[in-house]
Each structure stands twice: as C-alpha cells, then as structure tokens.
Design a binder for these strands. Structure first.
Length: 908
RNA sequence: GGGGAUGUGGCGUAAUUGGCAGCCGCGCACGACUUAGGAUCGUGAGCCGUAAGGCGUGUGGGUUCAAGUCCCACCAUCCCCACCA
C-alpha cells in the first residue's frame, strides 16, 4: 500500500473555504417548514487591531452549534454584522487623518477575512453595518417611533403622542398625572415635577409651548441636565459609561456640565424590564445584575414642613414660606419617629432658602467643594462623613419635633428626592454622621433581648426582628412577625396625616443618548420656531455629510455644527448631535431577518419567523447596558405593534475571557496574567495560530481550552495537542492499516457501543455549552478507533459505521478536515449537508456491567456481572469476591447496599 | 457594605449530579523509528511507600453505608454594584 498523504491543513482549508463561499453553503432559507434556529454572536466593533484568539472563543463555539443544528435539519440563521459607529474609529480617523467611512470599510473587511479563515459558517448574504445609510436610516426610523410615543400608565404601554395631545385638548393632564401619582410603580413614566395643565390652558398654548410640555412625556426627549463631560474625547458620557470617576473609553477624569441632551425614557419600562426577566433563559448572574441596575425599592415619600420662621423673615427674598416642605424617600417609614435630623444633597433646590445668614459662608464653601468633586474623590474619602448645618429646621410630621437640616455629599441628588430623613439609631451612615457632628440619636427598634434604650448603634434595623419603641401608634409592634407590617402601618399613618404616601423608587435613570461627535447616527430632529420637531419618515435617511475634519469643537458642540449645508434647512436648524452606538446595537438582531429591505425596516413575516433570537452569546461586559437597552427597544416596538415578542433574546450565555499567555508577577510575588491588548504587545491572533496549525486545530483548541465560562490564559502549546488528534482522525479514516499496535480483545459490539455513546455525550454536552468535553469525548472515541483497529475490526460493518459517525461528528468542530475526509472517502459534497447520525439506544446497552464494591466505605474490588442480573445476585457476587472477604475479616455483613448500576457497599 | 463566582496533580481540566476522584489534553520521564528532532509512534506517572497498603478535591466540623458534590463555620482569589436612603 502507498504511504498515504499526510494531514496538511494548509493544503485543504483555503480550498474548501472558497468552495463553500462560492456555493453560499450557509445561506439561510428565508422561512420554510423546517424548525428555525437563530444563533447570534454579540455585535462586534470592528477595530483596526483586528481579532485576537480571545474573540474567537465567542465565534467558534456558536459556529459549532450552528453547524450542528443545520445537520440536525434546522433552518439555521447565523449572521454577523458590524457595530461600526463610535469613538474608536472616529478617534483613529482623526489621528490617521483618514475618512472614518474608509476605515470602517477596511476594518470590517479585515474582520470578515479573519472570520473566513476560521471557517465560520456565517450567512454572508446578511452582513450588515451600522454606519451604512441603509442601516442607520432605520435606526432613525425607530428614533422617530420613540419620539412620537409616550407611556400611558393606565394601559401600561407606550401609545402615540397624538393620543396624549387629544386627551390634553379635552381633559388636560390632571387625570394622567394623578393616576401616575397614585400608582407608585409608574413613577418613571413622566418627567418628575411635571405640572398639570387644564384643557383650556393647553388649548391656549402656542405650538412651541405645547412641544415643550410634551417633552415631559415623550419616550425620546430633550432635557437640560447635569451630565458627565469627558474633557479628553470632548464628549458627553452617560452615567453608565463612567467608572470610578473616569470615562469608560478614554480613562479621563470626567467633569460636571449642564447641557441640553437627548434621552430615552427607559424609566417608564422599569417595572416591565424587571418582570419580564422571569421569562428568559439567561445566566442567573446577569439577571441579578439587571435587577440591581434597575434597583427597585419600595417605601414611602414623606413631607417634612420647613420650620424656620426666623430665617424666613430674614431671607424673605428667597421666597421661602411655611408651605414649603422637604420631601424624602424612605424604605423604612416605620423608623420615622427616630428621624432626628435631615440631610439634603448640596445641590438640592431648597438649600438656599433654608440657609441662615450665619451659616451662609459655610454652606457656600461646602457646595463649591462638592461641585468640584468627581465621584472618584467622593468615594475615595467615603469613610469620613462631611457636611454643614444650614441653620434651617424642619418638623418631623409624626411627632412634631423640630429637627435641624444639614447638607452633605453622602446624599445624592440623583437618587430619590435628593434629601433624606436621618435615622441615626438604625442606619450606619446616619449614625456616623450624628456621632461626628453631635446630633441626637433616638432608638425606635429594640432588638430581642435588649431591655433598655441605648443611644448607641443598634443592629435591630438589620436584624429585622425587634419591637417598635418611642414610635407613638407603632409602639409594641414586632418587626419580626412580618417586617412589612410596621412599614405598612407607618405608611397608612402618614397618609392619614396627609404628609406622605406609598412610593416606589427606581435607581435606573433616563438613558442619555446624544453625543457631540461626528461618527454616529444623526438624530432626525430640526429645531424650529415651534421647538424641536421631527423629520418625516419619508425624508430618511438623514445622511452624515462628508467633511474634511472630524475634530470635536472645544465648545462641546458636534463637528456637524460647523457644516452650514447640514445645519441649515428651510424649516430651521438641524440637530447636530448624533446617537450613541447603543442605539445601533439595540435592534441589529432584528434587521438580520430581512437585511436588505429598502422599503421598510423589515418584512414582519420574516421578522416573526426568525425572532426572537434562540441563543445569544458574548462577553459578560455587556451584561447590563446593551442587553437592557435592547430589551427596552423591543418593548417600545412591541407596544407600537412593530414586533410580536416582548423579549429579544430567549437564551443568553457568556464566554470567559482569554488572557495573555505571558505570566506576570505582582508586587506581592503572586503570579497573574494580563488581558491581551495591542499596547501590551501580547496579542495572539487567530491568523498566526491558523497559519501554523490550521483553522481546525485552532477551532478545536478554542473549545477545548477550558470550561466556556471560565477566564483562562491562552496556551499556544495546547494547540498542537488538538492538531495531533485531527491527524490521528485523518490516519484512522484514510489508512487504518498502517502502524498497527498490539492486538487486543475489543469486539465489534464494543466499538459500536462507544460510537453511539459518543453521539449521546456529544449532543448532551454541546447543548449544555460544555464544549471542552465535546472535544475530549471525540478524542476518546478516536483513541477507541485505534484500539478497534488493533483488534482487527477495520473493514467490518461496525467499523464503517463508526468511521461515518466519527467524520460527521467532526464536521462542526473541524469543518475543513471533515469535508476533505468525506471527499476522500468517496462521498458526495458536502458533509455539511449530511444528516446527523441517529443515536441507536440499543447500541449503548451492554451485556455485562462492572460494579465497584466497597467494604466500610473503601473500594476493595470490582465485579463483572450480567447487565440483567438481579439485585440479589449482584450482592451475592460482591460478597463472594475474594478481596471483599479478606477485608470483611471473617465478620458477617451488617448491611449490603446496592445502588443500581453504580456500587455495592458492604458494611460489617 | 451588598450581590455573584471559583478553589481538584507541575498546568488547562473531567467526574452520568450523593456512588470507582483525576477522563481528555499540555508539560514531563523513559523507550522506538531516525543523520537529526521543538516531527511521529509507544509506555509511565496524584502523593507517601520496595510492597501490602495508607493518605488525598482550600481549612475545620457535621449528615450518610457512601461527600469534590449536601449542611454549618472559616480562609483565599476573582468579578459586578456601591454613601442608592
């Protein structure tokens, strides 16, 4: 026999990649009778650096799953596209003095080249790119949908803004605002502090006034607010993009600026975003992170009347009157009787009015200090409380006590009402503050076993089991029976007094969407004499103009503001902000269903066939933002009747990170591995690995390296191990007679059993995302084939079946080598269109089973019994074992336990 | 401070979910084939012990005939959130 040709990935991979592409082998049918399976990778950002082997860990496993489902007879959609807008490309364009459009084309083409060299089976006919106008046209279209919507709390869904206008012209806004006020969960559906208008008032407003008023309701709205400003990128960044006082992308210390910005009213969906999490198959961790981010707390809002008659007289110019009150949100209204002082955030609107002349200088100094602070400074010093007395007082509404009002930066403007009632006996922060400034402490919850009041910190607040004291009508109530009972009683009490009511507070805030940069989706709004008005759908896309320079202005305006042809329209001045890229990625998974539709966003028939996404895979770094935003857009489009599903991603999985393979030692002598990054020069690319060992070995190793969810350092030395396995498959398929080893007694039936067991394990592990064990199972199967060969089984029907199974099971993992083997075996192209081998349950059964036997918990022997032997026979066989007898030391068995098929345990 | 995850050979890991701890691979050692090997093939190996055997899944307890797996306490590492009222 001739020496068979060796396995050489370089000789076969490009050949098959070209053929598959020419044949459009992985193009999904548009609809059909087959069951559909939509498997999607997180939308990649095409950077100039290209991909590393870390990125490939996302793409390879999903590709294996896609290929598996195709062979199982599913109509699979496995698409890819590019989240191309955004700062990295814009900054690169500025630095390289290139056009970002040009860079986008170059970078995304390079990504596609890399995908192809890994043998990924994307449907190339569905590639999309956020920066192409046939895509962002529809991002703008959705923006308009959102802009033209408001949240009708009574229907608990978004409705056309025209409906609201109709209501305002006949009934005014009293009814809806009253409804929101009475239904605490809907607190986020309208801008806080929106004043009611009557129908007459509304009808008398100018168009401009009306548009301004409607901004309080629109789901896309413009608002003046304090935002984070990145002085390096010269752009506004969202709260979510600030970490420890530094901008997420540039790393610059951010500053506070007041600017008029575009937002999406994601707060309106807070409750649904929480509730619908129950319906998704996502990692528990991600679900919890989303819940925490939305941050629902239930409690009460209570009014504290200002009690500062003397100061009022002296500062009458401030307009402060007795009717003024400080509203606070508390989750523990039952501790109201223990509120001995109040704290306002330094930015709170009543600070000026409350401040007495004696305290003015101290208050102003403190406010100036707090204003200049970044969050980093605040949190760095968070151990030591700081604050200043305003000189003002308020009345505790439940006991009439006159309590001092302070300001302190530990109270945040952005949460709740920006003011708190301080209960130092039962809140650690208030306690610290009271101790530092000598403020009174009154205990209202007495812990179990405590018999007398204490002025010290009490843990009863946390213990949730205590008795109310010093609390008027609540005295004697136990917090332990039902923690909520005291809270309910207190809430009813303040409601009866007319000073408070039940409230729900959410941590989540409006989603800041506008950016003062060029490289993003233009916002289709025009500023006219009537205020901010939308462009018409028919005018879309609003294209990005070509410009020579992309540098941001020093003023914080977008570079688009310097282009008169863009800015000036017959109706007015065009909006020059662009949308943050979160917008582009909030709906791309829908566009894949019908990516080239020029007349509508997508054909609903296509969309409803493919969506929702069955399996969504990517890194955990997008656990909160991207997924939350996508969920909100889905719900808005659902409310608008555009889509028929409420959650976009049925199942979600996160892959672990791949770190550099270079070991580092920290100052404590501990070893660690860094993330791969170009600046550290430790990036390993799929290109170099594939060039040396082949794409199939790269793919196999990406699966094999570790548990999918685990962070793990790359180990290039591991790749040849996988390649050796592929080489062994190659040889056992094409030349089983070469280099035979020592004979053994394996039977054809044994071989068939292993082959079918491998199918079973493969399928079970693959759907469980246990990719490393899929590969190790295949390696075991391969090793078994060599043993079977040595036993002389080559050429038997069982052998031929096993080879067929081996190659088909290999196809998703190593598509090139499997295709080549398939062809050399004399089969017709393509293996990727073959049916998946069918598991024969009978083949898995075996005639005899091996049962381990323990004596007093220690393994002493293994017995081989017939598979259908009854329990008594197996126990008897176990007791008959020589070794078992030896360790029983002549004693009789007190107990013999047989765990079916697993173990015999003898106790003496 | 709150939430979550992890801890098993020299390394990456596995263990049909309470039933033989260490599958598969890397690296290592020895051997074969070779002019040669960073190729290939074979053999070996958790640790201690010549062996019989003993000990072993971060630590300490517990439940059980049986614990990597369940319960309690603790230690370590990592991730997320965080003065959120």
């Amino acid at each position: 026999m001739n020496m068979a040709e060796r396995y050489s990935p370089q000789d076969i991979e490009t050949k098959w990649q070209r053929r598959w592409e020419a044949d459009a082998l992985y193009k999904s049918a548009s609809t059909g009778d087959k069951p559909k399976y939509y498997i999607l990778d997180f939308y990649p950002y095409p950077s100039g650096e290209g991909m590393s082997v870390g990125h490939a860990r996302n793409y390879v496993p999903t590709d294996v799953i896609a290929r598996y489902y195709r062979m199982r007879g599913f109509n699979v959609m496995h698409p890819i596209g590019f989240d191309a807008f955004g700062l990295p490309t814009e900054n690169a364009a500025i630095k390289l003095k290139k056009n970002p459009h040009e860079l986008n084309e170059r970078y995304s083409a390079n990504y596609i080249r890399q995908y192809k060299l890994m043998g990924l089976s994307y449907d190339w006919s569905r590639v999309i790119n956020s920066a192409h106008d046939n895509y962002y046209r529809w991002t703008q279209w959705i923006f308009l949908k959102i802009f033209h919507s408001w949240y009708d709390a009574r229907l608990n869904k978004a409705a056309p803004i025209a409906d609201l206008e109709a209501e305002l012209s006949t009934q005014g806004s009293g009814a809806i605002l009253d409804y929101i006020d009475r239904n605490a969960e809907h607190v986020g559906t309208v801008t806080a502090g929106t004043q009611p208008v009557t129908a007459a008032h509304w009808n008398a407003m100018s168009r401009r006034e009306k548009n301004e008023y409607l901004m309080n309701f629109r789901l896309a709205f413009r608002s003046n607010s304090l935002v984070w400003w990145d002085p390096v990128d010269k752009v506004v960044v969202a709260d979510e993009e600030v970490e420890n006082g530094r901008a997420w992308r540039s790393g610059a210390l951010v500053e506070r600026k007041t600017l008029r910005q575009w937002y999406f009213r994601i707060t309106a969906y807070a409750e649904r975003l929480i509730n619908d999490l129950d319906s998704v198959d996502w990692p528990e961790r991600i679900v919890k992170m989303q819940r925490n981010w939305i941050g629902k707390s239930e409690g009460a809002e209570v009014e504290f009347k200002v009690a500062n008659a003397e100061s009022r007289a002296r500062s009458s110019d401030s307009g402060l009157g007795m009717q003024d009150s400080i509203r606070v949100f508390t989750t523990r209204p039952d501790t109201l009787w223990g509120a001995t002082f109040m704290v306002l955030s330094p930015e709170h609107g009543l600070v000026d009015a409350l401040t007495t002349p004696e305290q003015r200088a101290a208050v102003d100094a403190y406010r100036a200090m707090a204003k200049g602070e970044t969050d980093e400074v605040r949190t760095a010093e968070n151990k030591e409380k700081t604050g200043v007395f305003t000189g003002g007082y308020a009345i505790n509404p439940v006991n009439g006590e006159r309590i001092p009002v302070w300001i302190a930066d530990y109270v945040l403007t952005s949460y709740g009402t920006g003011a708190i009632m301080a209960v130092p006996a039962h809140d650690q922060r208030d306690f610290d503050f009271a101790r530092k400034f000598g403020l009174p402490i009154v205990e209202v919850v007495r812990g179990p076993g405590e018999s007398k009041p204490t002025s010290e910190w009490s843990a009863a607040y946390e213990e949730k089991s205590g008795v109310m004291v010093n609390s008027g009508p609540l005295n004697g109530m136990s917090t332990g029976d039902d923690g909520k009972a005291c809270i309910r009683a207190a809430t009813e009490h303040v409601a009866k007094l007319g000073v408070g009511q039940r409230r729900v507070n959410y941590r989540i805030r409006a989603w800041l969407i506008s950016r003062q940069r060029y490289w993003g989706t233009p916002i289709p709004i025009i500023h006219t004499d009537d205020g901010e008005v939308s462009m018409d759908e028919s005018e879309l896309p609003l294209r990005l103009p070509d410009v020579a320079h992309y540098e941001p202005s020093q003023t914080g305006e977008s570079p688009l503001a310097g282009i008169p042809e863009f800015v000036n329209t017959p109706r007015g001045r065009r909006e020059t902000d662009t949308m943050a890229t979160w917008a582009c990625s909030s709906w791309y998974y829908m566009r894949f269903a019908d990516p080239h539709n020029d007349s509508r966003i997508f054909d609903p028939k296509e969309l409803n066939y493919w969506l929702p996404v069955d399996m969504y895979v990517g890194g955990a770094e997008h656990a909160v933002l991207h997924l939350l935003y996508s969920r909100m857009w889905t719900k808005v489009l659902y409310d608008a009747g555009v889509v028929n599903f409420i959650e976009p991603f049925k199942a979600l999985r996160n892959q672990g990170m791949i770190l550099s393979n270079q070991k580092k030692v920290d100052e404590n002598g501990r070893e660690y591995y860094e993330k791969m990054s170009k600046s550290k020069g430790n990036v390993i690319t799929p290109d170099e690995v594939a060039a040396e060992h082949g794409a199939d070995a790269l793919r196999g190793y990406e699966m094999f390296i570790s548990d999918f969810t685990q962070t793990v350092p790359w180990n290039t030395q591991g790749v040849p191990g996988v390649r050796r396995w592929l080489d062994r498959v190659w040889r056992i398929v094409l030349s089983p007679d070469e280099d035979k080893g020592a004979p053994n007694s394996m039977s054809a039936k044994d071989l068939r059993r292993v082959a079918h067991l491998t199918i079973e394990r493969y399928e079970r592990d693959l759907v469980a995302f246990s990719f490393n064990t899929v590969v190790s199972g295949m390696m075991e199967f391969t090793n078994t084939m060599f043993k079977a060969r040595d036993a002389g089984l080559a050429g038997t029907p069982e052998w031929n079946e096993a080879i067929d199974i081996l190659v088909k099971l290999l196809a998703p993992i190593g598509p090139h080598v499997a295709e080549e083997l398939w062809e050399r075996m004399g089969h017709a192209y393509s293996i990727h269109q073959q049916r998946w081998p069918k598991l024969d349950p009978d083949a898995i059964k075996s005639d005899s089973i091996t049962i381990p036997v323990q004596v007093n918990g220690k393994l002493r022997d293994r017995i081989v019994v017939a598979a259908d032997a009854d329990d008594a026979a197996i126990k008897a066989a176990a007791l008959a074992s020589e070794n078992v007898q030896k360790f029983m030391e002549g004693k009789s068995a007190r107990q013999v336990i047989y765990a079916k098929g697993r173990m015999v345990s003898v106790v003496v």
